[in-house]
Simulated assay, not measured.
Amino acid sequence: MNKEALDNLVQIRKLHHETPDTEEISGLVHSGSIRLKDAALESLSLESRFDLAYNAAHALALAALRYHGYRSDSRYLVFQCLQHTLDLPSAKWRVLDQAHRKRNLAEYEGVIDVDKNLVLGLLRVAEEIHALVNSLDIRR
């Protein structure tokens, strides 16, 4: 974990310090796990799978941020912080950046533009985040 980078974000008021809450973190991991499992169901529409995978990735990324004692009001920043909370390479969170932009277009402008490659890439990154979060000692 890169505490210095996260503390710099606190100084510019992009993140806030907040004591980790094991119940909250466990709930986020549980929520992310269920959504990730459902996102893998090929019987669902691509749009539903995208939505489930995106929200799974967000819940798991937020769990990692909360584990380290930080909170953000920005979904985008939660994803960006993965390089500091879980040492996720920037190329991986850039997949989340692309998904975030597509999600915002769908949510705020009604433009649903997802394809199978994006969904599969999003699933792969979310599964990696899931594995990394599961390696944390959440009950510390």
Rank of each mutant, 00 (worst) to 15 (best):
L52W: 09
N134A: 05
A99K: 04
H17R: 15
L118V: 00
H17C: 03
R140A: 13
K116C: 02
L122R: 02
D97Y: 06
G32A: 07
E18I: 12
A99P: 06
E42R: 13
R71N: 09
Q83A: 05
Q80P: 00
L6C: 06
S135R: 14
W93A: 00
K116M: 04
L52R: 15
P89A: 05
A5E: 14
L60W: 02
D21V: 06
E23R: 15
D21I: 03
N55G: 03
A56W: 09
W93R: 07
E18C: 10
S90I: 06
H130V: 02
I12E: 12
R101E: 14
H30K: 15
T22C: 11
T22D: 14
H58S: 00
V29A: 11
S48A: 12
Q83L: 01
H68V: 00
L9D: 13
Q80A: 06
L44Y: 13
S31W: 11
D38W: 12
L88H: 01
V125F: 07
L82H: 00
L123D: 03
L136I: 03
G27A: 07
L46R: 09
A131M: 09
A40Q: 13
V29C: 08
I25Q: 06
L122K: 02
G69N: 10
R94N: 07
D115K: 11
P20V: 05
A53N: 03
T22H: 14
I12H: 12
S72H: 13
R103S: 09
E4R: 13
P20M: 02
V29D: 10
S74W: 06
Q98P: 00
L136V: 04
H58T: 00
G110R: 11
L44E: 14
A64L: 00
N117I: 02
A99C: 05
L77G: 02
L15S: 06
E24W: 13
L44M: 08
L44D: 05
L120E: 15
D38H: 12
K14N: 14
K92H: 11
C81S: 15
R124M: 09
E24P: 03
R71T: 14
Y76H: 13
H130K: 12
P20I: 04
L86I: 00
R75E: 09
Y76M: 08
K37W: 10
L36V: 05
H84N: 14
K14L: 10
